[in-house]
Nucleic acid binder design. Structure first.
Lengths: 338, 338
DNA sequence: CTGAAAGCGCTAACAT
DNA sequence: ATGTTAGCGCTTTCAG
């Protein structure tokens, strides 16, 4: 058939035998404008017949909106997480017919940052920072210039109202409670030494133990763990067994990959999971349900953080600045390993 | 200072004491229009003073362009690779003042795909598929409807002119030649069994061996390798040693993580790298230069593939369809481990 | 060499 | 209940 000139609202109007304005009224369901059912159907039919899609650029120009928001991130975001957040954002955008413009956060000069230029060039209506390195001074610049933005960031100590972050403790508590209810008197933590006590995950673990009166094993976290390789984990567990004269009944792993490795260790050594040992890992992976046994996890609200951040951005764009951050809960997803 | 109304070309014109048209001429360096140096400077000064940035939406509308292209990908692209490609694309886009609109490839209905809608709504001028699942029938639809697109895809057997793919064999040849020149008579391949003979990487390895007359060890690829865990690699190597009565002098690893694990194995067993054993891994990682010894790698032309794809897309948009795919070479990056 | 004016496709007063 | 019209900010003939 080849390309015919793109169809405009004028074409629809002509075919429906009405004016362009009427087409706009019908298609946008403009409030306070009454359209007879007859013409409405005519317009709808014409639009469908011509396969009409409004020119967002023209629309945006008239509305003084860009109909797009920027997602700005670093070049080395971890992937699964990032894509889930993007999904959440995209779904909210789709509802409003907004598109997603992608920016990297390079900090040459605050004024020259890509998203700033884009905003001033009317290409975006606001920006969402997704785990991006972003200085307080730059955020101050954005505020000063009234550029709408939201920060999606999990690390604590970063407090502003237009922030979406996550809360881990309750989910860990739920997991440990579940382990306890299934008979585990002692729950060990498997994590990297260099993270140590400062980590949110370890803090949540300690918090859960004290709330539930579960024994803290003397050798936990397994501090000899330099990385999450299989050999490291194996030797750490061996040392644990030696010091505590036996395996823990349950282990909370800092990452999914540690969880997997622990499962492999157990399999190799004839330890039955979850009968002899329960395993729960913190993090998300498409593969968690696919291991044998399927790995129980504590998962971050990635999609929801994206969606919440995007909704918050729209609120800001529409003049309703949030007064307090959105905090979303991680959740305990028990599978076969616990 | 607060937000003042956005500055338009009219404001610049007024300040410079010229007409809007002149501003446009100067700022776009319009061909075939002579502007006196005096007015040119006046316009430039005014623009700078007002910090003027043209409204891309209005500009695009007038030019009948969207000033943006879509990157279409799946939700689970592997990350380092993806971000590098995006960088290449973004740099080319920046040259032309284009922005990047992000789409997921969901195949509900060919006509309803997001990028199709976006094209018809004038939000994008074309699409780049980055390792996305995309059916031939959908591509046919895009061609039929004259929607400009390019496919960045490495797997073979996918042949069309508007394609950017990569070629691995020469880089592997270079690596093996280097290993040989340093005295390695035998080079083993460390890869996952399930990939086996069908993989491009293994094929490239065999090709290099036969070209250079390097010995193919009987136990290569290390077919017992079920995954890339440390324990698996260790037992595979042990088996290799048993069957070949000794370690290979050099190993080509299918992935960077295998390379790292091999280095750790060597360190644990007192094998000196590269004196006793040379290691080269296929793939890219920020960490490759950071290991001890720094890992030699064979790296894909990720950035370049993005850039080439984007340039190709602009060619297509401007009516110059390519007649043949772009094929870019991987490169051998020797570091300390070889 | 520069300016006036038309118009890209759309929406929203303001008419009717 | 619908049509007329005036722009949104920009580029580009066409006149001076």
């Amino acid at each position: 058939m080849g390309r015919t000139r793109k169809v405009s609202s004028k074409d629809v109007a002509r075919l429906a035998g009405v004016s362009q304005a009427t087409v706009s009224y019908v298609l946008n369901n403009t409030q306070g404008v009454k359209i007879s059912d007859h013409t409405r159907q005519a317009v709808l039919a014409a639009a469908k017949k011509l396969n009409y899609i409004p020119n967002q650029c023209a629309r945006g120009m008239r509305l003084k909106k860009a109909m797009s928001v920027a997602v700005v991130s670093d070049k080395d975001v971890s992937n699964t997480r990032f894509m889930s957040v993007l999904e959440g954002i995209k779904d909210v955008l789709a509802d409003r017919n907004y598109s997603l413009t992608f920016c990297f956060s390079r900090w040459q000069d605050d004024h020259e940052a890509e998203h700033v230029q884009y905003f001033r060039a009317n290409r975006i209506d606001g920006a969402i920072f997704v785990w991006a390195a972003v200085s307080e001074s730059h955020l101050a610049y954005l505020i000063e210039n009234e550029i709408p933005f939201v920060v999606i960031h999990s690390s604590p100590g970063f407090d502003r109202p237009n922030l979406v972050r996550s809360h881990l403790d309750s989910a860990i508590l739920a997991a440990v409670a579940d382990l306890k209810s299934k008979g585990a008197d002692t729950v060990a933590f498997l994590g990297r030494a260099r993270r140590g006590v400062r980590s949110r995950k370890y803090a949540g673990y300690l918090n859960a133990l004290s709330h539930l009166g579960v024994t803290t094993p003397p050798e936990s976290p397994l501090s000899t763990l330099a990385d999450d390789s299989e050999a490291q984990i194996e030797s750490a567990l061996n040392e644990y067994v030696r010091k505590n004269s036996g395996l823990p009944q349950a282990v909370l792993c800092e990452t999914v990959s540690m969880g997997f490795r622990l499962l492999r260790y157990a399999a190799r050594n004839g330890i039955r999971v979850p009968q002899d040992l329960s395993v729960v890992a913190i993090g998300s992976s498409r593969f968690a349900p696919l291991s044998v046994p399927a790995l129980s996890t504590i998962e971050g609200p990635l999609y929801e953080m994206g969606a919440a951040g995007c909704k918050m951005l729209f609120d800001i764009i529409e003049g309703h600045a949030p007064t307090t951050p959105v905090v979303l809960e991680w959740s305990y997803v028990p599978r076969e390993s616990s």
